[in-house]
Structure formats: C-alpha cells, structure tokens
Design a protein around this nucleic acid. Structure first.
Length: 839
DNA sequence: CTCTCCCT
C-alpha cells in the first residue's frame, strides 16, 4: 500500500517517513498542510500497514459528505480497487463498507454513533480528523471523547489520534496534544492580492462589489470571476443592478438553490461564455468552481449567533477571519496563477482575527449535553477540552433538556431519565427526539417521524408556505408532490424511516390520541414549548419565551389565535423576529396532552395603597397568561412567601430595625470576630436564610402596620443557640460599672462599642474599660460636666498621663464647681459637684 | 434591506 502512494510527486510524499516514525513512538500527531499537498488521500493509505495498528481500522473524519465520498473514491482508485473493499465510506443513509474494509472515511457525526456502540473504540487503531481547523462542534466533541476513551480504557497499543489542519496556527493544537506539528508545503499557484480599501461609510456592500466587478472585467477581460458575498440579499442586489458584457453569464450560488441551479454555477458554461459567480460561503469550502482566475471578496459573511437567553439563533453579518480570507483567495489559484481583490485595507486585515471562533463557542449545546449525559459525564469539566463549552449555553441546554424531560433534578444533581436515554439514541436534535417519543406515546409515530424529518433538513417548501402542514402533505403524497421537490421527498422519507427504526420498540401508547386537526400543532408544541404563540390584540404574535414575532407576508395561518411555531428567523439588529414555519394550535390541548406546559400558580401581591395583600390564581404557558382569578383569601404560606420576597428585594430595609435589634446584630458581629461558631448577621447572609429565621415571625402579619410591629430582635435571637445567647449577655453586658458606681450604658451601635461617661466619674481608674474578659476595649467618650465630649480614648492610662493636664487647665475655669485634681488616678470618682460630694 | 454553512 505504501509503495502505491510514496512516489506520487505530491508535497506530502516527502514527509511520509517522518510521519511514520513519529506515529511509531507517539500517540498524537498534528499534520499541518495547505490544500493541494495531498494529505487527505496519501497519508491514510501510507499508514495502512503500520505495525501499531494491530489489524485495527483507520477511521478518517470529514466535515462534509461530498468530501468524505470523494476522498474514499480517490483512495480506492489509487490502490486499484472498488469502493467498499479495503477503502469504504460511511455516512447517514449512505454506506459502502464490507468485512474487508480497513480504512473508513466517515462524516463527523458518525463518530458519536460509533462511540455509543463501542465506547472504547476497540477496533480503531488510528483516528484522523481532517480539516480540523474548521473546528466544528462534532469534531471538538469527538476529539474530547476519543481522548477520554483512550485514557479510561486499556487499549493495547493505544489509539493514535491525528489532526490534519490547514496552515495558520497549530501551536494551540500542539500544546493541547503535547506534540510538535509536522509541516508540509502546498501546491497552489500564486495569487496576487490587491486591497481596495474600506470604501465610504454607509455605502451599500452591493454597490461597492458591483464597481469592483466592472473594474475587474476591464482588467481581466478573459477571466471568469468568483465573488464572495454575505448572503442571498446582497447576491440579488448585485445581480439586478449589474451590467455585464454579453459574453458573461451571471450565476448565483447559495445553499437554498436547487441542486441543478448549483450545478449551473459550478459547471463550465455550455456556450463557452465567461462566468460571474455570485456566491455565499458555500463556495469557500464545500463547492469548488473550476476555471476561476479572479476572486472578489467582500470580506463579510453571515453567521448564526445563538442566544442562550431565548434558545434561538439569529443571523449577523460579520467580518471574516484572516484564515477565511486565505481560503477564499486560494479559490483563484487552483489551476494557474490568479488575482484576488479584497474590499478592505491591508491595515484592517492585520486587525482581523486570525482564526474563526470554534463552533462550540457560539452554538446550541443541547445535543452535546444530552450526549455527555448518555456517556455518563455529568459535568463538562470531567473531560479535557481544547475549548471548553461556555457556561451560559451549557446551562441553557440543561434547562431545555429538563423541560423536555430528558433530565431530572434530584437535589442539586441532574441525571438522565429513561426518556432522555431513548432520546440520545435518536439521531436528531433533542427537541425533535422528544417530539418523536411523544408522538409515539400518542399513537402517532409516523406523523411524528415525517415532521421530524422535514424539520431536520432544509425544507424547500417552507419558502412558499410557512404552514408546516403543506410540507407534510407533499411529503406523504396526500397532495401530489411537484417534480422539483421529488429528490427532497425521497431523502426526507428515508430520514423518517430511520427515525422510526431508532424509536424504542413495544412502547404502548399511553397518551390519548389527538384528533387529526390537533396533531401537527401538538407535535410542534412538544418540540418547541417555548415557541407556543398567541395572537396579540395589536397584531403579531407573542411567544411563550416572551419574545414577539410575526409573518413576513400575509398568511392564512395568521388568522389562527394560537400557533405552534417551529422556526423563527431573525437578523441581529432588527427588532422583530419572523415566523418561518408553524402550525395552528388547538388551545383545548392545554387541558389534555399539553397540560404539562401549563403552570398553575397563586400570585400574591402587596397593594402599596392599602398596605394589604391581594391574591390571584393564574394559569399560564410560559409568558402567555391563560386565566386570572381573584382569590378572596390569601393563604399564610403565600403571604409569607411574598413578604420574604419583598424583604429580599428591599435588602431588609423594610423591617423595623429597632435600636435593640441593631445593637444585637453588632454584638454578634463583635463575638464572631473573637470566636468561631457564631452566625453571620450581615445582610447578604441574612437574605439567603430568610425562610428559616424570619418566616415563623411573619405568619401572623396581614398588613403594613403589623409588619411595623414585628419583633425583629426575637427573630434574630433565634439564630443563636441558647448557650450563645447566655454568653452574649455575659460577655457583652448592657451596662458597664464605672469607678463612681454609675452603671453606664454601652453603645454597641458603634464599632468599637463606646462608653459615654463624665470625666470625673473615671477618677481612680488605672485601667481602660473593657468587656468580653478584656478582649474588647471600649472607646471611652470622656464628657464635660455639661455632657460635652472632651476626649475620646481607648487607652485611659495614657490619657491620664499625657492629655489630662491640658484638659484640666482649659476646663477648670469653665466648671469651677467640679473637681479637677492634679492626680486623677488617686482621686475619688464622683457624679457630683465638689459641694454635693462633701455633703 | 428580511436566512450562512454543515451533520447524526
């Protein structure tokens, strides 16, 4: 096998010895090679006879079906075999594999299914991720699970993992896999790059692109041109406003076009005209257009941005990365040298990000989280990730899976339900998997399978009609399917059959069967409970998730008061969302099959005018309120709950903080500084435990004036044990006996606590007053006979010896009737004047 | 001025 590929003259052939030597010693390899180096076909074949394979297979992952098939076909041809012998491929609904197959090219999603059947990957010796730089969600997850499989199972010899990536930054991969990349040259022709600058502000992209096209045709009169635009809208604008020479054929190219229209853009023109292909990102990686010498790159692309707060994606027009611009440029140099015009400046190019963000950063993670639970991974941090899944979308995914009954909560932990386990075995989005199982329970497996299949893929009929029932009628043949949709119909029916095979067998229908009219709405509402919608009085619909949306053009569905919406489209920056597909929903289902979606709650409110409570019983579906009913009685529990919520909101400021309560809190704070084991009475902690300490005292409170009389001190005291309460009053007494015999109240509302006392009453005291067995020194406020503060000290002896003389001199004249002895430490303390003391 | 691409 090796000899069949080692002399092909491709750049990669020179590196085969190095690659084999590396893999003989190490488990990981990063192979960095640009397109045209031959890595995809040469490397797997060259490794088929390596001893460390131990008769196990080589699996090579490809992000796209066409690429997987082509790679397998080319490799089979290289070794003069039919496909399905030594080399085969495997993808959804299309497999060419035999018992003799040693090398399988598979699409990335297949790896997850392989891991489900055999978590240790026992018959795989080498796992190759091709085009790993694209960082698809499945590739990232596959790598993480494969590394986990290698570390948890005894593989002998261990599984080899190889990442093949385009040039531009493999350092991160090297670090993650603790290896050193092997680099190869490519075999592309030189492409001249011209930066045309950023253009005038606010000028339409289509206008600038149109001008660049005109200029390019003048400079390259004999060349076909490929233009990269962000989306269909811009493609249409350019196509309608552009005037091109007669011998040029304009060919739009984007994913929603039919296969034959896409073929027209790719194939050479029949009359030998030049081609002007106006394409989206589809031409960046998926489709190759031959005969292009000039590329015009708008520098923009449209990308979905997943919003964890709504669980929906919206589209945004963003600047492409440097890596993407290199890829687009390369499309001009496949057969001979070419030219690339970029509609931005060179300095801006330097500021652009080098790589695209990995998909895991900005994707719906519900499928990933379900799969992890099915593998027994309950927290993503149990695994090693090149890029860990972001917390926000991870939590959103868990919430959705809880709503779909795939997970259940026991205490603070989540676990997979039997229903969730069945969902994970179905190869569809968890929403659709849930819908399939619900459909089965309601005796409507086949309809559910049809609907899931339509929603799984691009649906050409939804462009004509947003009513899902139209697609279903074409699919089942109830309404004759137009011939242009025949290939869609066949593929979608095949998908539906696969879903039926994946559903659990022998499951009795446990739910009542909905009527034919209710069926589609019921199924959609099971999959998308957050998108149940109701018509607003003002027009448009409100969704259960709180957002609003409407039809882009008048639609017969728009008469329906209730809808089950499947897909919502929107562009970032625009206000409303568009309903792309939906079905009418019978609200009678809220009392039967959809009863689980209805929440029944008693809402208590505080009427701030009367200071009383009012209660309402409400039923709702998410943000959509179904009914409201005023209750004459408010239960103690409901009222307490509301009071606690109000208290939390007010940061405890609504409670009657008496001086005693404030002092108590300060005393506990003081004790907790001295000893461990005392509870914290700080607002933050008190707020989290309101239910335990405050609630019992709220039970009798029915209005505002009763709240004002709340015994807050007792409530706070309940947080202390009996021993602590005893200790608190002995260690931090109310009053302190000063030398004169007065019992002076200690002010614990300050920190440190203060002792306001007339100076004369402290005579004879050589020590600073303290509490808590001398651990807390009181801050003595020494007062004049008239009660004016003279001095503040925590160190009385130092006051007597340093400051007393000056105070004495100043005060003796003003208060002559009071004693001002020369030696205060031996004088007799007194509350009175000299005259009264003598008496 | 109203949807990028891909996949089980």
């Amino acid at each position: 096998m090796l000899s069949k590929v080692s002399n092909l003259g491709l750049p990669i052939c020179a590196l085969l010895d190095e690659i084999r030597a590396h893999l003989a010693d190490e488990q990981n390899l990063v192979l960095e090679a640009p397109t045209g180096a031959g890595k995809t076909t040469v490397v797997p074949i060259a490794l088929l006879e390596e001893p460390w394979l131990h008769d196990r297979k080589i699996i090579m992952l490809q992000p796209r079906r066409i690429a997987a098939k082509n790679a397998a076909l080319r490799m089979a041809a290289l070794i003069n075999e039919q496909i399905g012998q030594t080399v085969g491929y495997r993808m959804r609904l299309d497999t060419k594999i035999s018992a003799a197959t040693r090398l399988e090219v598979v699409t990335e999603g297949i790896l997850l299914r392989m891991l489900q059947d055999d978590p240790s990957l026992s018959d795989v010796g080498l796992l190759i991720f091709d085009e790993f730089h694209e960082r698809s969600l499945d590739a990232d997850l596959g790598l993480t699970l494969a590394l986990n499989a290698r570390s948890t199972f005894e593989q002998d010899p261990p599984l080899r993992i190889m990442l093949m990536s385009a040039t531009l930054g493999t350092d991160e991969l090297d670090a993650f896999l603790q290896t050193k990349a092997i680099r190869s040259e490519g075999k592309l022709f030189a492409v001249d790059v011209h930066y045309l600058g950023s253009g005038k502000p606010r000028e339409r992209i289509a206008d600038r692109v149109a001008r660049a096209i005109q200029n390019a045709f003048m400079k390259h009169p004999d060349s076909s041109i490929l233009v990269f635009l962000p989306g269909q809208g811009e493609i249409r604008q350019v196509a309608t406003q552009l005037e091109v020479p007669d011998r040029v054929a304009i060919r739009p190219l984007y994913g929603d076009l039919s296969l034959s229209q896409q073929q027209q853009a790719i194939a050479p023109s029949p009359q030998g005209e030049l081609k002007l292909v106006l394409a989206t990102n589809i031409a960046e990686t998926s489709l190759t257009i031959d005969g292009v010498d000039v590329v015009i790159d708008s520098g923009l692309e449209r990308k979905p941005q997943f919003d964890p707060s709504t669980g929906m994606s919206r589209l945004a027009t963003v600047k492409i990365s440097q890596a993407s611009s290199v890829q687009r440029k390369g499309r001009a140099g496949r057969l001979r040298p070419g030219t690339c015009y970029r509609l931005w400046s060179e300095s801006e190019q330097q500021q652009r990000t080098t790589q695209d963000e990995p998909e895991i950063q900005n994707a719906d993670l519900s499928s990933l989280v379900l799969q992890l639970f099915a593998f027994g991974v309950y927290h993503s941090n149990e695994l090693g990730w090149l890029t860990p899944p972001p917390a926000g979308s991870y939590e959103q995914a868990q919430d959705l899976l809880l709503k779909l009954c795939a997970l259940e909560r026991s205490g603070s932990a989540l676990s997979l339900t039997a229903h969730g386990n069945a969902m994970a075995r179905i190869s569809a989005h968890p929403r659709l998997a849930h819908m399939l199982l619900m459909g089965q329970s309601a005796g409507a497996s086949e309809s559910a399978a049809h609907l899931a299949a339509v929603l799984s893929d691009r649906d050409p009929i939804s462009q004509e009609s947003a009513d899902m029932r139209t697609s279903l009628e074409y699919l089942s043949g109830e309404v004759p399917c137009p011939s242009v949709f025949r290939s869609w119909q066949k593929r979608t029916m095949d998908l539906a059959k696969q879903f039926l095979r994946q559903m659990p067998r022998d499951t009795p229908a446990r739910l009542p069967r909905p009527s034919q009219n209710q069926l589609t709405g019921f199924l959609l509402a099971s999959a998308y409970p957050d998108r149940i919608a109701r018509l607003r009085h003002s027009g448009g619909y409100q969704l259960a998730n709180g957002r609003s949306c409407e039809f882009d053009k008048p639609n017969a569905l728009g008469k329906s008061k209730w809808l089950a919406v499947a897909e919502v489209g929107g562009m970032a920056g625009r206000r409303g969302d568009m309903i792309r597909s939906a079905a009418p929903l019978d609200p009678a289902l809220f009392e039967t099959l959809l009863a689980e979606q209805v929440t029944d709650s008693t809402v208590v409110d505080w009427d701030s005018k009367t200071g009383r409570f009012i209660a309402e019983r409400r039923t709702s579906v998410g943000a959509l309120s179904l009914s409201k009913e005023r209750l004459s009685d408010v239960s103690d529990e409901a009222r307490t709950e509301k009071l606690i919520a109000l208290t939390r909101e007010a940061d405890l400021s609504n409670l009657p903080w008496s001086d005693k309560a404030v002092e108590f809190r300060n005393k506990v704070r003081l004790m907790s500084r001295l000893e461990t084991g005392w509870p914290s009475l700080e607002s933050t902690e008190l707020k989290t435990t309101l239910e335990s300490w405050l609630a019992p005292y709220l039970l009798t409170i029915k209005n505002l004036s009763e709240l004002k009389k709340l015994d807050l001190l007792s409530a706070l005291q309940s947080l202390l044990s009996w021993e602590q309460q005893q200790k608190l009053s002995s260690e931090l007494p109310e009053r302190f006996e000063v030398p004169s015999g007065s019992k002076v109240k200690i002010n614990y509302s300050e920190d440190p606590p203060t002792l306001p006392v007339k100076l004369q009453e402290m005579f004879g005291s050589a020590e600073s007053p303290s509490v808590a067995g001398g651990r807390v020194h009181l801050l003595v406020h020494l007062l004049s006979p008239a009660g004016r503060p003279l001095q503040v000290t925590q160190d009385l002896p130092s006051f007597w010896s340093n400051s007393y003389d000056a105070v004495k001199k100043e005060m003796r004249g003003r208060y002559p009737k009071h004693p001002w002895p020369d030696d205060p430490t031996s004088a007799t303390p007194t509350r009175f004047t000299k005259h009264r003391s003598k008496r």
